[in-house]
Simulated scan of single mutants.
Amino acid sequence: MNDRLAHRFLGTVLPALLVVGALGGGFAFVRATVDGADRSAPTRVWAEHRTKPAKDPAGPVGRGRADTELTRKLLPVPPGYVLGPDIGVYGNDVELTAARSTEMMKATADGYDAPAAVRRQVDKEIDLMGMEGVALRSYTFPGNALTVDVSLIEVKDADAARRWYEDGSRRSDGESEGPVIEGRKNSSCSVQTEESDGDGTPGIGTMTCLAYEGDLIVIVVAQGMPLNRSTVAELVKDQLDRIASPGENA
Rank of each mutant, 00 (worst) to 15 (best):
L96K: 00
L96Y: 05
T97I: 07
T97V: 08
A98S: 10
A98E: 02
A98L: 01
A99C: 05
S101V: 07
T102K: 15
E103K: 12
A107G: 14
A107H: 14
A107S: 15
Y112D: 12
Y112S: 10
D113K: 13
A114K: 11
P115L: 10
P115C: 05
A116L: 14
A117F: 12
R119E: 02
Q121H: 13
Q121C: 11
D123K: 09
K124P: 05
I126A: 01
D127H: 08
L128E: 15
G130I: 04
E132Y: 09
G133P: 03
R137Y: 05
Y139F: 04
T140Q: 13
N144T: 15
L146M: 12
L146T: 07
L146H: 07
V148L: 01
D149A: 15
V150L: 15
S151Y: 03
L152A: 03
L152C: 03
I153Q: 06
E154Y: 01
E154K: 08
E154T: 10
D159W: 13
D159A: 14
A161M: 04
A161C: 03
R162T: 05
R163Q: 15
W164C: 12
W164L: 13
W164D: 12
E166Y: 07
G168C: 05
G168E: 01
R170V: 13
S172T: 14
S176C: 02
S176L: 08
S176V: 08
S176H: 10
G178T: 04
P179T: 06
P179D: 02
V180R: 09
E182F: 06
R184T: 09
N186G: 00
S187T: 04
S188P: 04
S190I: 08
S190V: 08
S190D: 11
T193C: 10
T193I: 13
T193Q: 10
E195C: 15
S196G: 12
S196W: 02
G198D: 08
D199C: 12
G200C: 07
P202Y: 06
P202H: 06
G205W: 00
A211W: 00
Y212W: 08
E213H: 09
D215P: 06
